[in-house]
Amino acid sequence: MSSLLSYVDFSKPSLLLSLASIAFNPIAWNILTQFYALEYRNKTITRMFGENARRGCYFLAFLIFSFGMLRDTFYERALNDQPRHALLPAPYNKLVPAALFVVGQTFVVTSTWALGITGTFLGDYFGILMDHRVEGFPFNVLRDPMYVGSTMCFFAGALWYERPAGLLVTLYVYVVYLIALRFEGPFTDMIYSKRASSQKKAESKKEL
């Protein structure tokens, strides 16, 4: 590990910019619950779009996707600025990262397809809830396939470009996502639990 760290140039601004951009998305969209609480309780974004929750969610989806593309650009630039060092022998130095990238992208794309735009980009904060829990692929393989797939792609990039700094960034990505999930999961569970409770009350009133 110490030998690999010697190939990490911490003085490069591009590395710090990459780390900041990686943390921004999950922190801004999942950890800063005060922002989302404003939408969930007060419909701040929805009111910006003429009381149209779906348009507000699409706007948020556009922002998240755009910042994700920017994050990937910063990561690639950071890797190019870092010292190169062989991490795997040929031909595994190309085969392994290629396989990781394909599998990772498969998890990301299929989870987005299964959830849809509103399901992927926090439509539940806008009151756009799914009728049933998604249990098909890839959610029958992983609990959080989008986060796992994204982490695999970062790992693949580090191996493909043969940059030890990329391994450090991948570990950082994993930690950031773990922290984000600690905030995102309970808040989402609360939203669906509240709906289930409301539905039960409504059914009880009908029976009376």
Rank of each mutant, 00 (worst) to 15 (best):
L100T: 08
V103E: 10
R133P: 13
T118C: 02
H132I: 12
F67M: 14
P138H: 05
L95P: 03
L168W: 13
E76M: 13
T118L: 03
C153T: 09
R143V: 08
P91I: 15
L122H: 10
V96S: 06
P164L: 08
N140Y: 02
E76V: 14
D131A: 10
V102N: 00
D72H: 09
H85V: 11
V148W: 06
F101E: 07
T73H: 12
L178P: 00
G149K: 03
P89E: 02
P145E: 11
V173C: 11
L88V: 01
P145A: 12
M152W: 04
L79I: 10
D81L: 12
V169R: 07
F139P: 10
S150Q: 13
P91L: 13
L122M: 10
Y172I: 07
F139Y: 11
L171D: 00
H85G: 10
F154Q: 04
Q82E: 08
Q105K: 06
S111D: 10
F74A: 14
V134I: 10
A114K: 08
T151G: 00
T106Q: 03
Y177H: 05
A78K: 07
T110W: 00
E76C: 13
A86I: 15
A114V: 07
M130D: 06
I128T: 01
Y125A: 01
Q105V: 01
W160P: 00
P138V: 04
T151Y: 02
P89W: 04
N80I: 14
D131E: 12
L171N: 05
Y177D: 05
I179R: 02
R77P: 01
L178H: 12
M69W: 08
L79Y: 13
F101C: 02
I179Y: 03
P164C: 09
D144L: 07
Y147T: 02
G123Y: 00
L159I: 01
A158R: 04
V102A: 05
F126T: 05
E135M: 12
S111E: 09
A90Y: 15
G166F: 09
L79P: 09
V134L: 06
